[in-house]
């Protein structure tokens, strides 16, 4: 049952990442991988909200598996993030590569924090 919840979340999360990535990449002309940056930030926001809701007693372990482990886990990606960073570095775009790492980590952390705070206010 738990495993099915993870699968159900991932079956939605992975295609959502792919479609969002496509939609974002179609709308800018820069080398910066905004598509992956966007899905990772969005997943961090949702996971933060889920964690905040759990702290306020408004979540359950099942919801955590479905939306946290499944949906957010599959919506976000570390492999594509690091591959894109490598590609930037290999092309001599060291600044963009470093900016991608720095911005992704800081925005991810900030998004988790923001999601958590908002959920705690909402469910307090």
């Amino acid at each position: 049952m738990n495993w099915l919840l993870v699968v159900a979340g991932a079956v939605v999360g992975a295609p959502l990442r792919y479609l969002t990535d496509r939609a974002v990449q179609a709308r800018h002309g820069t080398l910066f991988p905004w598509g992956t940056f966007t899905v990772n930030a969005a997943a961090c926001l949702v996971l933060g909200a889920l964690a905040g809701a759990a702290l306020a007693g408004a979540s359950s372990s099942r919801l955590d598996l479905l939306l946290g482990t499944g949906l957010c886990g599959a919506l976000s990606t570390y492999s594509t993030f690091s591959y894109e960073t490598l590609r930037l570095a290999e092309r001599g775009r060291t600044f963009l590569a470093a900016a991608n790492v720095g911005a992704s980590v800081l925005v991810g952390l900030g998004a988790v924090h923001l999601g958590s705070q908002v959920a705690r206010q909402l469910f307090a």
């Binding site: 997943a43 996971l47 933060g48 957010c72 990606t77 492999s79 988790v112």
Partner: peptide, 12 residues
């Protein structure tokens, strides 16, 4: 690999 790796759990 996208489903296996996770940025959100890392940030959390």
């Amino acid at each position: 690999l996208g489903g296996f790796t996770t940025f959100s759990a890392y940030a959390l």
